[in-house]
Design a protein around this nucleic acid. Sequence first.
DNA 1: TCAAAAGTGTTGTCCTTACACCCATGT
DNA 2: ACATGGGTGTAAGGACAACACTTTTGA
Lengths: 253, 253
Amino acid sequence: MTKPIHITQNCQPLTTTQFKRYTHQNRMLVAVDCIIFGFDGTHLKLLLIKRGFEPQKGRWSLMGGFVTAEENIHQAAARILKQLTGLTDIYLQQLAAFGDPHRDPTERTVSVAYFSLIDINQYEEQISHDYSAEWFPLKKLPSLIFDHKEMIEMAKEKLRYKAAFHPVLFELLPEKFTIPQLQTLYEDVYNKILDKGNFSRKILSTGLLIRQKDKEKNGSKKGAFYYKLDKRKYQLKFNSFLNFIPNPEVQVK
Amino acid sequence: MTKPIHITQNCQPLTTTQFKRYTHQNRMLVAVDCIIFGFDGTHLKLLLIKRGFEPQKGRWSLMGGFVTAEENIHQAAARILKQLTGLTDIYLQQLAAFGDPHRDPTERTVSVAYFSLIDINQYEEQISHDYSAEWFPLKKLPSLIFDHKEMIEMAKEKLRYKAAFHPVLFELLPEKFTIPQLQTLYEDVYNKILDKGNFSRKILSTGLLIRQKDKEKNGSKKGAFYYKLDKRKYQLKFNSFLNFIPNPEVQVK
DNA sequence: TCAAAAGTGTTGTCCTTACACCCATGT
DNA sequence: ACATGGGTGTAAGGACAACACTTTTGA
């Protein structure tokens, strides 16, 4: 069995006056992997693809790709996200860099994981076929390649942590939504039943929501008012501490 | 002026049966940079080095280094931290990956920033000479190379965010410390005067501290009791939400 | 004895929780 | 009419900020 060779070390370093390169250093691939969250009205889900190329062809995986020479890492993540979902201007946040020497057995690759929250209704069905993509409930994830499981675990923790204080979960909902829908989302994220009265007051007290004239009538006879985010206040208050969850017991490293 | 050439792309990819490498991809350097916090009893400080090599020789910089072929990123950060401080088993947390294509004009380098909290008294004076290292108060930082300023800003935010809920600032203090010393630390981190009565009660109510028999007598005539961390409870409660700061208004992206 | 910092007591306010209750409406 | 979920009222309890007060001791 041949060991992979670090080809870059065989290359002669350039040494022009202006642009010395660092010599004797090990160059490696840098990738991004996207943890894409969606909410179908009942459960939080992840969008995974069936890997169409070697190695590990046919196994489930996060959507990922290599960072190119011209782009920064965030741009790479946005590009990858668009490739799979067709969406731009999406909530997209860096999670962490994963760099175990053998995480990808093919070749040393450092992967920067990003997590994103999308409105599952906006997602283009079409594209999912090209990538054999599928939404999986968080509790029923398939076996995944490399360290993707670990990435997802970290993303879940981070989401819970963030959502306990910041109104980030709105990113998962359509433009118009009801408070009971929002509550279901929180309940699924924290796996915890919340008191509807207290929840509704807490959410409304943030002043982030604007009540609409119409109601959603599928969930109940009475119907629940639709709300929209007040985009301006949302931007403004995003970083303040809003304490959405009573006694959060999120564990984060 | 010659443009830097992406040498790796000129290399022929290996294609043995067992170990295909990814073809046509751009390989790059991966570095770590360490944001090292210390507390001198009055102010929070950062340990910076005067860069001893080109490019930008002689300018101030975070301590950093390249990730080698055999180690993971965290190990690289721990190695770099030990190189400069002589310390191991230090609080060391990944902050974020920085990957602007031109952040290091020499050559495309992705840097993973780590931040660490050390007891400034444990720091070995000796080593600082080899690296021309110096402690700078956060409010009087010198001009720094590359994007190091941005890394530091992010680290400050992260530290404030984390310390508002988790007892992480203890990492900056010696084994024995007094509550007024701890309060000074919090006050410097949040640039905010705290009520001593409320602060002391809040800290003690966590149950993390064990009172010692002896007192520190320099700060006052009466003297303040020394405390030690209850290591077991510290581990146990580290991730729960303890709310150290009234109305935190930390801004984090 | 007095100044200065450590530490304790006390009180009013605000927030939260738990849960009872009312509301609207499709069947 | 009644079941069902949406939404409001409310009282008890707890947490917390503000600040007055007591303690200790070196000079």
